[in-house]
Amino acid sequence: MTVADALLLALGVIAVGSGALVVTSTHLVRAGLYLVISLGAIAGLYLVLGAELVAWVQVLVYVGAVVVLLLFAVMLTRAPIGPSDDLDRPAWPALLVGAGVGLGLAVLLADAFRWTVYALPEPGTAQRMGEQIFGGWVLPFEIISILLLAALIGAIVLSRPDIGARTGEPAED
């Protein structure tokens, strides 16, 4: 058990634990904040595994933007601050399928990799990642930028206040 292993284990426990809290919490806002912790732990995992750029991009985009967006949405939909008890649907199908998927995958992966030891790689620095992105993966990169543009435009269009006017309701809320 090296230091890397210990770190992986600890961060993994934090990630899974807070992920569990995300999906079981009765407070909307707390769920969002638990998501932050989970995402942060995963960024830590990336660092241990040597993908530095990915880790910091994760922190920037996921924790910094996505979660903030989610919390804004929570605010804009007038979610209750305290606990709410109508957040959940029946448990058993979710339990069955979720447990099946999670445990099944875990068993599969554990069976595939057992307790083999792998050497830690060279860290994936920005320079190296940049070589790859603008080298071999430049086409997907460009397409992703178009996709981001499309998503931006789509989000703006979807947010227009006059979309509900077709059914005869007044345009303003």
Partner: peptide
């Protein structure tokens, strides 16, 4: 929600079958 359950259950079953 029911559709989501159906999709994920199907995926699970297919995965188990493949495994």
């Amino acid at each position: 929600p029911r559709a989501a359950v159906a999709v994920f259950t199907g995926a699970l079953l297919l995965g188990v079958a493949a495994a």
